[in-house]
Amino acid sequence: MEDKLLIWKLSRGSKVALCRIHEKYRDDLLRIAAGLLNDISTAEDVVQDVFLMLVRSSGNFEIRKNLKGYLTTCVVNKIRNLSRTGKSQNPVSLDDIEPAISRSKTPVQCMVCDEEFQFLYKAMAKLPYEQKEAVILHIQGKMKFKDIAKLQSVPIKTTLSRYNYGLNKLRSLLKSETEK
């Protein structure tokens, strides 16, 4: 209900509503985008583009289901477009961003906090994209399998298999990483 109200207010130019939507969803979307792209800077750009699109279309915008789901779908589509146009090729892997420095003036940004997460992101980078998408959207994005299947334009069983394959692969990859 709050989201519908926020969208209604946004369509009338409410900055307060915009700030609220941004605060409510930006970080979660960034997490999903960063997981799919393995590149925080491009992830920031993608999420910002999605919000810009939301603002520009706010006058004639209607949410049928939930706003988060809609924004997540936009982020995923945007990332797919990026890979189609080849703009996200050769992404910088997270472990390459040694003390990463953000695009703004803040000098130092260490992206992934501890070793476990480093392993996790390394392993995620090795997953086929469709499997990674199913895993991230279901676990981080809290999306239902039927919605992911719709997004991937495949039967729900295919999405479930992708998810299970992805999870199993992560398990074995993490096992081999920790044994090194």
Binding site: D27, L30, R31, A34, G35, I40, A43, E44, S102, S104, K105, T106, Q109, C110, M111, V112, C113, F117, L120, Y121, Q140
Partner: peptide, 8 residues
């Protein structure tokens, strides 16, 4: 898993 958010 979290990404460190750059507030700037």
């Amino acid at each position: 898993a979290k990404v460190r958010i750059n507030q700037d």
